[in-house]
């Protein structure tokens, strides 16, 4: 059985995957000795649905500025279209010979191909959505580095004003994403690092305030205050980098977080 990366993809494809598995078992146990009915109509319905998906997919790919999505779409289209053609061939062959074993095998291969091709297509779009979240996280990462140049209270206020909405936006997106993942370890990793960031953001602001105050009072204890602030920035940067890394994992990367 295939492993689906997100709950949305799983909800759409898993019931069909189970049905295809049952058909495979029937075929492999040689319990499919009865005459196959005319499958022309259901195969045509699959073909129409595939053509619609390809059309919608091409429209979306044409309108996006995500270059990776544009590159990854065509092979996914080809996979699902080839499987649809295979189904049509199987239906024709079964119409001629309702007992044909090679045609039954072709039917199963076609159904499996439709599943994996549709899964690949959905994964392409899903990864495009992931890249949008990664961009937000990278923005936060870059902005965290700005904290090292804040040396007065006015700049600190500006820094906090800019950091807070960015951090909240990222946390919301990452939390939503964690709820979508079927891989528990990946989901928990995202939640844990997001919680770390929520906890350490006020600590960072405090450490920056101490640093600014130390500078204002003449600089005694500057090194310690700076080291403390930099340590917190390091921890937060680590959490954001881990979020970026985990976001980009797929279900195939099962052992990445073990």
């Amino acid at each position: 059985m295939p492993v689906f990366h997100t709950k949305t993809i799983e909800a759409i494809l898993d019931p069909v995957a189970q049905q295809v598995s049952q058909l495979v078992i029937l075929h492999e146990e040689a319990q499919d000795g009865n005459a196959m009915p005319d499958l022309s109509n259901p195969v045509m319905a699959v073909s129409a649905a595939v053509q619609n998906l390809v059309k919608v997919g091409k429209d979306t790919a044409n309108s996006t500025d995500d270059k990776i999505l544009k590159q990854e779409m065509p092979p996914a289209f080809t996979g699902v279209e080839e499987s649809s053609n295979k189904l049509a061939e199987a239906a024709m062959e079964l119409k001629r010979d309702p007992y044909s074993s090679p045609a039954r095998k072709k039917l199963i291969d076609g159904a499996r191909g439709i599943l994996s091709g549709t899964s690949d297509l959905l994964l392409c779009f899903d990864q495009s959505e992931v890249r949008k979240i990664v961009r937000v996280a990278k923005g936060v990462l870059e902005y965290l580095a700005v904290s090292e140049v804040v040396e007065c209270l006015e700049d600190l206020v500006t820094f906090v004003k800019n950091l807070s909405p960015g951090m909240a936006n990222m946390a919301n997106k990452v939390t939503s994403r964690s709820k979508e993942l079927t891989h528990t370890a990946h989901a928990n990793g995202l939640i844990n690092h997001t919680e770390n960031l929520k906890r350490t953001t006020p600590v960072l602001v405090s450490s920056m305030k101490i640093f600014v105050t130390v500078l204002k009072k003449g600089g005694a204890g500057r090194d310690e205050a700076q080291q403390n602030r930099n340590y917190i920035i390091g921890c937060m940067s680590h959490d954001v980098n881990e979020i970026i890394r985990i976001l980009q994992l797929t279900s195939a990367d099962d052992d990445e977080l073990s």
Binding site: Q19, L23, G33, P37, P42, V43, V46, A48
Partner: peptide, 29 residues
């Protein structure tokens, strides 16, 4: 959203096909 709807339509059509093929042999759950 449109992609998801299109994928749902494929899933439904494939399910109907597999059932049609399966019913001929043995009822699928």
């Amino acid at each position: 959203e449109q992609i998801l709807e299109a994928a749902k339509a494929i899933a439904a059509a494939t399910s109907a096909l597999v059932k049609a093929a399966g019913y001929a042999q043995r009822e699928l759950v």
